[in-house]
Amino acid sequence: MAPITGFALQGQLQILPATAQLSTAQQRNTQLAGSRGSLQCKQFLSCRSTRQQAHLKLQRRESTTVQAVAAADQQIAKSTSTKDTWYAVVSNAEFMFNDVQNESFAEQLRERRRYFGEQNREPDFYLVPNPAWLDDKFPDKAKQVRRPSAALVSTDKVWITFMKLRLDRVLKLELGELSLEEVTKSTGPLPEFKKPDKWTAPYPPYKPGWWEVFMAGQ
């Protein structure tokens, strides 16, 4: 929470003995600092020599062979174009990719990609510019989406519900059973967005094209 004001009633409160609970949290922080830091935190990895890094990665691989095998299986399954149930949020591409408000969208996708990497999981989400299924499968609703359009697709229904809550100004759709190829099929690349007329931030905007790493096949 950030500091905020209150022009409201003042009241004394008699709640919880939070001292004990906080000290548990503090202990956890301390433990983390001691035991888990170097292996998992990217910032730390980047300080180490390449050889050390390779060694660490190797250790991690060995300790998670089972997960890695599972991930490899997943990949093979995907490549043979089995069908999954997909969910999506879709909107005007400029809103999704080029609005200052949604720079946090890029941060979220990077965060999720990092997390999946830590878990040795294949990503279950992709960005799709001008998704072909929009007009093909939803000719009526498609009229409500300004073009060029863009979509976030995922097999994780619950996460798409969360992303709809976050972005709000997006259309949520259940796409049904599609292969990865079908769900990521695009009717064309995005044009170059023009720079925002007004720029209030004390830093330059995100580089156009940040979204490309989240497209299938990247």
Binding site: L32, A33, G37, Q40, C41, Q43, F44, E111, Y115, W159
Partner: peptide
């Protein structure tokens, strides 16, 4: 959906000092 997002705990190992 929020509960699942919080359970994921993206920052579990983030707050480590150096």
């Amino acid at each position: 959906a929020m509960l699942k997002e919080f359970k994921t705990d993206y920052n579990q190992t983030h707050f480590v000092r150096n």
